[in-house]
């Protein structure tokens, strides 16, 4: 493993890989990252979130007009929550807007300032920016938002969600991690959770992270204990 910087050559041949470019048949890194030459794997140490279909995201409702909500993610991408399609049969006409439709069609009423989680259904290039069509929006009540660098999200979740589970167990918090780098923490020891998340972000590249987080969570809950 070695640190690679933007402009460093990753391969003498053209390789299709995220966070790289091919110029004159050779492949170069475009972000700072760790290169495992034996496996040919390149993991970014820093990166900017670029949305993909299916991404779980957390944002704040910024506007609500004509039953369409726009959601802000602290990124150049704006999310749109469209009204659910009216059921063709068996609908109740006017009463739909009071949430009276069939259960799967029902959508929570969202207001400006509400925190929502959602999934990216579609990434659309509009005339002047990239728009994310969102689905399965859920209003998140209460809780604290913690922002991290999107490149650190995989470490906060951990392999097979082990780190996230460790965090939740150690703090008794419910933690939802948006791939856009916004994390929602609710219930339990929120301050401890925030401290641990920050530590993961700062020390993601240093070995033995799981042990250090485990220590922090144990000592943190003892201190608070009593």
């Amino acid at each position: 493993m070695k640190i690679v910087l933007p402009g460093d050559k990753i391969s003498d041949g053209p390789v299709r890989m995220e966070n790289t470019i091919v110029e004159n048949g050779k492949t170069y890194a475009t972000v700072i990252g760790m290169l495992d030459e034996s496996k040919g794997a390149f993991v970014p140490l820093e990166s900017v979130w670029y949305p993909r279909q299916g991404d779980f995201v957390i944002g704040i409702v910024e506007n609500s007009k004509n039953n369409v909500q726009t959601v802000q993610f602290d990124s150049p991408f704006r999310g749109l929550i469209l009204p659910p399609p009216r059921p063709r049969f068996g609908g109740r006409g006017r009463d739909d807007r009071f949430g009276g439709g069939p259960r799967e069609e029902r959508q929570e009423v969202l207001h400006i300032g509400d925190v929502v989680s959602a999934f990216v259904k579609d990434v659309k290039r509009e005339s002047d920016q990239i728009i994310l069509i969102l689905e399965r929006p859920k209003r998140l009540f209460g809780g604290k938002l913690v922002e991290v660098r999107p490149s650190k999200v995989p470490r906060i979740i951990g392999k097979a969600s082990t780190m996230l589970k460790q965090l939740e167990d150690g703090t008794k918090c419910t933690i939802l991690v948006g791939l856009n780098g916004i994390i929602w923490v609710n219930g339990g020891n929120v301050a401890l959770a925030q401290k641990a998340i920050t530590k993961i972000q700062e020390e993601a590249h240093i070995g033995g992270l799981t042990e250090r987080i485990s220590e922090l969570l144990t000592s943190g809950s003892i201190n608070r204990g009593s």
Binding site: L5, P6, I32, S47, S151
Partner: peptide
């Protein structure tokens, strides 16, 4: 810029 993760061709 290099430390930000904003993709760039060279430093």
């Amino acid at each position: 810029v290099a430390s930000s993760g904003i993709p760039m061709r060279d430093i």
